[in-house]
Computed example of a mutant assay.
Amino acid sequence: MGIDPLPLDPELVRTLSGVTTATLTTVLLKKGLRNLWMRGTKPIKPGQPRVVARAFTLRFVPAREDLATPASWASPISTRAAIEAMPPGCIAVVDAMGVTDAGIFGDILCARMQKRGVAGLVTDGVIRDLDGVLASGLPVWCQGTAAPASVAGLTFVGWQEPIGCGGVAVFPNDVVVVDADGAVLIPADLLETVVPIAVEQERFEGWVVHEVAAGVALPGLYPANEATLARYQAWVKTQG
C-alpha cells in the first residue's frame, strides 16, 4: 500500500545521531522551515536513545461505528498488516489526529515492531498497555496512555501515504530525528543541504558551551561577532 519505503545511509544515521533536535529546528528555521517539530511527541520514558530513521507513515481518521470494530483488526487494511510491511530501521510515524482517549498500539503490536527491527514509534496520539510496551523495548514518543483500544475513537485507513502528525506534514521516507525534546522532521529532499550545516552548528554550540563554562559573557559570543568567529576557527584548526 502507498509508497515503497527506502533505506537510509547508515553513515547519515551515525552523523545525525550526534545532532540534537533543538539544533535541527534552528537550522531548519534558518532555511525558512518553521513547522517541522511534531507537537505532543514526548518520550514515554526518560533516557530513550536518539533515533534517526526514515518515516513509515500510518493514518487514522475519526471512528465510524461500521468500520471501527474489533473485527477490523483482521482486515487486509489494518495496523497488523501495516506492521508486517515495515522495514527494519524505519520509524513508524502515526497520525492519530491528536486523540488521547484511545490507544493506537499496545504491548503485542509494539513487541512485534521491536521484533521486526523497527527503530521506534512516534505519534500525536497515545498508547495502551504501558507496562508491556515498556517491556517490549520499543522506543516510543507520544502524548501518554489510555486504556481503550484504537477502535474506541479512531478508524485505521492506511499506510505509506502523506499524513499529519502533531501539526506537521509527514511524507513517507522523510527523515525523522527524535530525542528528549520530541520529534523533528527533515524533508527528504533537503537532507544533503541540512545535515552538513547541522553538524557544524552542533560543533559550534558545543564550543560555545565550553566558553560559557570558562566565564565568557554572552554578548558577542552567542550570536558570535567577528572576533569570536576568529577564535572559533582557530580552535577548529587545532582539532585536526
Rank of each mutant, 00 (worst) to 15 (best):
L24S: 07
G166A: 09
I186R: 06
L58Q: 13
N35V: 13
W235P: 00
A146H: 03
P162D: 07
Q143I: 01
W207I: 10
A22D: 12
L191Q: 11
L36V: 15
V51P: 03
Y222G: 00
E192K: 01
L134I: 15
F56I: 07
L221K: 08
I104T: 08
W207P: 07
G158E: 01
R64V: 15
L24P: 06
V175F: 11
T15P: 02
L190T: 10
A135P: 01
E192V: 07
L154V: 05
S75D: 15
A214H: 09
A224F: 03
L6M: 14
G144R: 02
D101Y: 09
I186M: 07
A146C: 05
V195N: 08
G220L: 07
R116W: 06
N35Q: 14
T57I: 08
A180H: 12
Q143D: 00
A217G: 10
M97P: 00
T123A: 09
A111N: 11
E84P: 00
T193Y: 03
P88S: 05
A227F: 09
S72K: 11
G132E: 11
T41V: 05
L190K: 13
G103E: 06
P10R: 04
Q201M: 03
P148V: 06
R54N: 04
T238L: 11
A55L: 05
A198F: 03
R39V: 12
